[in-house]
Write a protein that binds this DNA or RNA. Structure first.
Lengths: 359, 359
DNA sequence: AGCCACTGCTGAAACGTTTCACAGTGGTCC
DNA sequence: GGACCACTGTGAAACGTTTCAGCAGTGGCT
């Protein structure tokens, strides 16, 4: 193998060495059947001897389309997204495509920047979990003819594919569960986030709370859903929330939390336990996503499970279909979340015990 | 903006629209200062009107080098690696490079495949945490002239850059800590992995155990380091290990574990706690990596901390230096790990209580 | 002998960009 | 008034590949 220069070795060098034309080398590479066995072997030897590696840029330039798709996630440090990414890769790999994985980290400027790079790379399409409202950049991508499939986000309209989970239902499941257990003062963590997913989870929880109406059948007071400032969805933010909650006067202190994701829940749990708050008897916690770490948290965490890898697979399939060029029909599948109850919310609570002070 | 075709809009179309030559458009893009303000504006308007986006493949083809580096990690689901990736991205971004992130998932075939893709993409260099022994593919990459920096792995020789952590020390720190606490029968989890990093951790732990020698000063028996089958480094594998440990007869059952990484430790903890084993008083656990979830585990996890983002940053810096073309001096920095003691290993144990049955 | 079909290969065009030698145009200096 | 300069802009070559029209050779058929 030639030293230090294999990557500057072109198909022309191979042709020279094998004593054939460049067209023939290309044929050996792409349609070996049209080349005679003898020539084929000669070319293959030359390729091996020179350590020739195709130049993907040149291929792509000539072909007009690349062999890659883009995946732009909100937070690569969240295991939810790495699981989604696994599903995406599975499908992409089966189709012979590479995945360009980028992380917006929740920062719109990063998101825009990465979309730009993906456009410059002429990816066949982009899978993205967008931040906040659909950005102009997203529309620009579509106008440029790059298919975009929204990931973990409902589409505002039928003009694009979107793979989502029914987050209103998820929020409701979490809250209903806590209400059933007798909790009346519930706090929703992460609610200050502007992510629509989070807002839907909160709305679902609110709906469940509202549905209980006045003095419950169990004699408890009217339930309420508190909110705390803070829009980050990280373990650290969960820890801070714990401090805030414990800082509240006992009469107004919630007895349970619905967390916008598991990272928050894990941080919250950790800090509560560290301060001697007994979970679940003194305080119950429900997370969201059911990441692998949820079951291994300070107290095994009840969580709203979402089909993570399946979400990624489905999104990738839709993207490939759309990029395929055939007559594509946009779809907006919505998966149903399920509640996984673990120890962190297992205790029952007497609603009457939480009668609020007369205000 | 033209519809549906912006990505097939070339610099030539822009030139036509602006009434200039393609060379001038290119100049506006790359050296705007050599173009007169009036022309510059005209070209910029044309670009905006047409929604023109540079074709990176064509740029790259002409330039001969791409604006990307490759990052190939062992397990993207392990937060350790996402933290490392964050460090890498930081440095790459500052240099105006994109990072192509791939996951080998510990599978050599995937690793080879992804390296091939990276070579075809003509990345400026590759950062990788290799599986097992250095593969022929890695040498091939170097022979092709693609700089490769080993990540989380000591280099066998001085002919390449490698960024690592002193895993022998790390293993030793973990074991010494447990020995000091009075543990005499310690199990090492994950030891069947062929990853050199893991073997070094085990060797370090073994050294610490051996150093205690005969009947300890504290009157306890000669300490021992057990091994269990199982080479996976996942939460699930940690759970399985718990079952194995609890299946051992009490006289031979270890009283503490050093885990090859935190995923194992978290799984182990979870299952031990679930079966009512009190951690740390009945069983102590020390993990490795100190990922964010360690502190939030079933019992806050003692762990050997490694400078994760710093590892990524340093590796990326070395890669950029090597790819830069100047006179590059290979370096093999080795970072020192530190032990973070948390509750999972805090109890003291009386060594005499663990006198082994006479064999 | 003439024609055809088939096989195997060639050589050039094209993809979209950057770069570079060069040309045109005024202005400045001697 | 000529030489020189700075400033703008032009147009073609080149990057490495794929594709495609076409050519040469071979063998079979009429």
């Amino acid at each position: 193998m030639s030293r230090e220069a294999a990557l500057t070795t072109s198909i022309r060098d191979v042709a020279g060495r094998a004593g054939v034309s460049v067209g023939t080398v290309s044929n050996v590479l792409n349609r070996p059947d049209v080349v005679s066995p003898a020539t084929r072997e000669r070319v293959r030897s030359a390729i091996a001897e020179l350590g020739f590696v195709r130049n993907e840029s040149a291929r792509h330039l000539r072909a007009g389309r690349s062999r890659t798709i883009g995946l732009l996630v909100l937070d690569i440090a969240n295991p939810f997204f790495t699981d989604v990414a696994r599903g995406v890769e599975e499908v992409a790999e089966a189709a012979g495509l590479s995945v360009l994985l980028f992380n917006s980290g929740g920062r719109p400027d990063k998101e825009a920047e990465h979309l730009e790079v993906l456009a410059e790379q002429r990816v066949q399409g982009v899978l993205m979990s967008p931040i906040a409202e659909l950005m102009p950049q997203v529309w620009a991508m579509r106008e440029r003819g790059v298919p975009v499939v929204l990931l973990d986000r409902r589409s505002p309209g039928p003009e694009q594919c979107a793979v989502a989970v029914d987050d209103v239902l998820g929020g409701r499941l979490a809250a209903e569960h806590l209400l059933e257990r007798g909790h009346r003062r519930i706090v929703f963590l992460g609610g200050a986030s502007t992510l629509p997913q989070v807002q839907e989870r909160r709305a679902g929880a609110q709906a469940a709370v509202d549905a209980v109406g006045g003095a419950g059948a169990d004699g408890g007071p009217r339930p309420s859903l508190l909110a705390l400032p803070g829009n980050e969805l990280t373990v650290a933010a969960g820890r801070e929330a714990a401090a805030r909650i414990m800082g509240l006067p006992v009469q107004r202190r919630p007895t349970a939390a619905v967390c916008a994701n598991d990272l928050l829940a894990v941080g919250l749990l950790q800090e509560l336990v560290r301060h001697g708050v007994d979970v679940p008897s003194s305080f119950a916690v429900v997370g969201y996503d059911d990441i692998d770490f949820a079951a291994a948290a300070a107290v095994p965490l009840s969580s709203v499970r979402r089909p993570r890898a399946e979400l990624g697979r489905r999104a990738a399939e839709l993207l490939l279909d759309e990029a395929g060029g055939g007559h594509h029909h946009h779809e907006q599948p919505v998966f149903e979340p399920t509640l996984v109850v673990r120890e962190s919310s297992m205790a029952r609570r007497d609603p009457a015990a939480d009668q609020e002070e007369p205000s």
